Simulated assay, not measured.
Amino acid sequence: MNILVINAGSSSIKYQLIDMNTELPLASGLVERIGLEEGVVKHKTFVNGEENKITESFPIPDHAVGLKRVAELLTDEKVGVISDPSEIKAVGHRLVHGGESFTDTVVITDEVKAKVKELFPLAPLHNPANLVGVEVAEKVFPNATQVGVFDTAFHQTIPEKAFRYALPQKFYNEMRIRKYGFHGTSHKFISEKAIEYLGNKDAKVITIHLGNGASMAAVKGGVCVDTTMGMGPLGGLIMGTRSGDIDPAIIFYLTQQKGFTADEVADLLNKESGMKGLTGFTDMRDVEGNFVNGDPVAVLAINMYVYRIKQYIGSYAAAMNGVDAIVFTAGVGENKTPVRRMVCEDMTYLGIEWDAEKDKIRDKDVNEINTDGAKTKVLIIPTNEELEIAKQSMELIK
């Protein structure tokens, strides 16, 4: 069974075609600069262990043109990996915000699309683009079942004491203002891998997803009990361009005393803060390079970044009354970085002890990097959100 996974952004389409018999990709790629003068398609195929790359530049006025070209490449006589689009049994869509309406993966119907539209105000940058991806895929792959996998669904098990804010009741009852959480597909995938590795279905796991966007989750017995992002993806950890947690009084000060508009504050906190605001760089590799060279700006920024992660580890250990493993994933979490060492330093009270030699090895799906005999496991597990979306899609249509 072949399943195509699509993550549609406002000007891009990220995709991966997965053979579910092997759970390996047949092809993957990115359509970007949609709607601009010159678009780009970057397409990769994986055949007999060989990776082949194709890059094309041409006007891509809308998502329909981009996805149609993807279908052509997938079935091309020379570079195609399938003979006909009908060989794709399902298209799994990443949908960012499901609100309280979607607690699980769903087959996309007209009713589902209408509900996703209702949720546009909760994710104005993501849900509209996600829905465009669905509507285009329905036309390009009419024989495939369209499946929606929501970023927020995994976090819908969080108890009310953790997801509610201390605002007047009507703000929740009438406006559904609450914590929703994001990166749920990643947290679900790596927590399940960790629980399987630990051999304990009741394990208490803290998952740490560190990419340009970053979040953590507390997972007890496979069930999410808390997460760092809130109603939107701005809260929690320090990120590439997002501030993470701040005192709300800062917003009042900027708008009431310094003349900032609400839009300017939104841009500041979402696009100009985090590592970009602290250092001028959004890529952690640049920040870490300066950190290693002793640049005081980078040293402070990395220490702030790590301190916030450690705060949440302590908070989630308290929420679960213990922790059996912490798990690092995503770009910063998986790759060469001083962050893991620094997070694990001075955490022996929680049984967390880092092993430098083990951290150099990446030869398994789950890599254990704690010292021998450490009470708490420290794991690196590469995330695979596309495979998780494909697996959930397959389970739904079997």
Rank of each mutant, 00 (worst) to 15 (best):
V219S: 03
V205W: 02
E135I: 13
Q169G: 01
T207Y: 09
I177D: 08
V136K: 10
N143W: 07
A129Q: 02
T157K: 01
N143R: 07
N173V: 05
I177K: 07
I158A: 00
E160D: 08
G181Y: 12
V149R: 06
G133E: 02
F189L: 02
A217M: 10
S191W: 13
E196S: 15
K179T: 04
K170G: 02
G211F: 13
V136E: 04
I206D: 08
Q156V: 01
P142M: 11
K220M: 11
A162K: 05
R164G: 02
F141N: 12
T157I: 05
Y180V: 12
Q156H: 02
G213S: 09
V140G: 14
E192P: 01
A144R: 10
M216P: 08
M216H: 04
M175A: 14
M216N: 11
F154D: 00
I190S: 09
F189G: 03
P142Q: 10
N173D: 13
N212E: 12
A144S: 15
H187V: 13
V136L: 14
R164Y: 03
I177Y: 12
P168E: 02
R176P: 00
N173I: 01
M175N: 10
V132L: 15
P159R: 09
R178V: 08
M216Q: 09
L198H: 12
G133V: 04
V219F: 04
Q169N: 07
T207E: 12
I206F: 06
I190L: 14
L210Q: 05
Y197A: 11
V149F: 10
P159A: 06
K139D: 06
A144W: 03
G181Q: 08
Y197G: 04
E160N: 00
K204Y: 09
M175R: 13
G133K: 06
F189A: 07
F163T: 00
D151S: 07
S191E: 08
K193A: 12
E174R: 11
I195V: 15
R176Q: 14
I158F: 00
K204P: 10
Y165E: 03
E196M: 14
A166C: 04
K139H: 08
A144M: 11
V132K: 15
D151N: 03
N143F: 09
H187T: 07
G213V: 04
T207K: 15
E135R: 07
A214N: 12
G148S: 11
N173G: 13
F182H: 01
A218K: 05
A129R: 04
P168T: 01
H183T: 06
T185K: 05
K139Q: 13
Y172M: 01
Y197F: 15
H187A: 07
T152C: 08
V219E: 07
F150I: 03
F154E: 00
Q146H: 13
P159S: 07
N212T: 03
V136Y: 12
V147N: 13
Y165L: 13
G199C: 05
A144F: 10
H155E: 01
Q156Y: 00
L167R: 00
P142F: 15
P142Y: 14
E138I: 08
T185P: 04
V132P: 14
P159T: 01
F182G: 04
V132W: 12
G199M: 11
G184I: 12
Q146G: 14
R164T: 02
Y180L: 06
T152P: 14
I190K: 03
